[in-house]
Amino acid sequence: MASQRKPLIVLLAAPETSASVLYGLFDVLVSAGAVYPDMVNGAPGDEMLDVRIVSADGKPFHCIGNIPVEPQAAIGDIEQADAVIVCDMYTSIYDVPKGRYPREVSWLRQVHNAGALVVSVCSGSLLLAETGLLDNRQATAHWAYRDMFQRHFPKITFRNESVLCLAEEADRIVTAGGVSAWHDLTVYLIARYCGYRTAIETAKVFLISGHSEGQSPYSVMTRPMESTDGPITDCQAWIADHYATAKPVEKMVARSGLNARTFSRRFRAATGFAPIEYVQALRVEEAKQMLETDEMSNDDVGAAIGYEDPASFRRVFKRGTGLSPAAYRKKFRRISQIARPHWGAHT
Rank of each mutant, 00 (worst) to 15 (best):
P37R: 06
I53S: 02
V28I: 11
I78T: 10
F26H: 11
Y90G: 13
I75E: 06
S31F: 02
E70D: 08
P68W: 01
P71Q: 05
I64A: 09
L49D: 05
A32L: 07
Y94F: 15
G42L: 08
Y94H: 15
Y90L: 14
I67V: 14
L49A: 05
V35C: 03
V84I: 10
D50P: 08
D77M: 06
V69T: 05
D95E: 15
V84R: 08
A83N: 08
A34I: 04
I75R: 02
I67S: 00
L49F: 07
T91L: 14
M89H: 15
G65P: 02
P71A: 05
V28T: 04
I93S: 15
G33C: 04
C87F: 10
V84C: 09
S31P: 03
F26I: 00
D38P: 01
H62Q: 10
I53W: 01
Q72V: 02
G99M: 09
A56H: 07
A83R: 06
V84F: 08
I93C: 13
Q72F: 01
E79V: 12
P102F: 12
C87L: 08
L29P: 01
V86A: 11
P68C: 04
I85K: 09
D38T: 05
D46S: 13
D46M: 13
C63Q: 06
V51W: 01
V84S: 11
P102R: 10
Y94P: 08
